[in-house]
Amino acid sequence: MTVDSTGGTTGGGPPAPGSQWYDADAGPLVRPYAMTGGRTRPGPSNVRFDLIALVVVDDDPPGPDEEAVLGPEHRALLSLCRAETQSVAELAADADLPVGVVRVLLGDLLESGFVRVSRPVPPAQLPDERILREVIDGLRAL
């Protein structure tokens, strides 16, 4: 096992079995995309998460074994999501990662069933008058 307690790979050995997001053959990669294995787009599902798409942890997540092989950035995002339902933009700001990187990492987490991501409500159906009233009153009360 080359995964240390923080989930990062240690030493120069081969990646741990199942650590599908770290590829020893990837060659030298320029950060920040090193942590995504050089990918700049999310995986096969190829969704581009909106900045205000909300990320919630899945009610039925994979077990601890699968979580143990997650990289440190994946885990950091996951624990942020566990603390509170957050938008993609907030996750990026909190994790201090560029949005593009967070999108790729979230794509991984989505694909492996750790999180679910909401589609933001399209503007065409958005301003339900009751909601807008609530927003205005909420702003006044700030």
Binding site: L51, A53, T85
Partner: peptide
């Protein structure tokens, strides 16, 4: 997904 949470921009 996301329950009833609503995000406005």
């Amino acid at each position: 997904d996301g329950g009833d949470a609503l995000a406005l921009k």
